[in-house]
């Protein structure tokens, strides 16, 4: 089946199999490997991407369901020299260890700050609750999101 979607601002037309997931086309066809597969059942959040402003687990979205939508992956955020405030905050707070959860974490935080630039601790915790990290204990990650919120405010 043919689908059309916007990925990181670029229009893409793809011929996909009905059973392919959004995660598969991002990784295998578009080679956007910053989106990770940790569990394949919507539990860990490593495959989080932003679809039309909302975070989704891309392992739980069929490619066909992404037809006509706009998707942002980690590759669509900052670059070296022009980091997104969330990326900068993760770096400066030491919120990164093994890094496998990091792209999903950064995108969940970005989606939160896009809809609410002044979140409280509780809102941050809820917004990040779909992303599992096995290394950090979350403390630095939550601090990084608070720090990013401060910078977005400025």
């Amino acid at each position: 089946m043919k689908i059309e979607l916007k990925v990181n601002g670029v229009d893409r037309r793809l011929e996909v199999e009905p059973e392919e997931r959004l995660l598969d086309i991002l990784r295998e066809r578009l080679h956007l490997t910053g989106t990770k597969e940790g569990c394949g059942e919507g539990e860990c959040g490593a495959c989080t991407v932003i679809m039309d402003g909302k975070t989704v687990n891309s392992c739980m979205v069929l490619a066909g369901q992404a037809d006509g939508h706009a998707v942002t992956t980690i590759e669509g955020l900052g670059k070296r020299g022009s980091l997104h405030p969330v990326q900068k905050a993760f770096l400066e707070e030491g919120a990164v260890q093994c890094g496998f959860c990091t792209p999903g974490m950064v995108l969940s935080a970005k989606a939160l700050l896009d809809r609410n630039p002044h979140p409280g601790k509780e809102e941050i915790a809820v917004a990040m609750s779909g992303n599992l990290c096995r290394c950090t204990g979350y403390d630095r990650i939550l601090k990084a999101v608070e720090r990013a919120a401060g910078e977005v405010e400025q």
Binding site: I74, E75, R80
Partner: peptide
């Protein structure tokens, strides 16, 4: 700053 964190926040780190 962790040297490897750059590639990780940018989604470039290769697992």
């Amino acid at each position: 700053l962790r040297e490897d964190a750059w590639g990780k926040v940018l989604g470039q780190a290769a697992f």
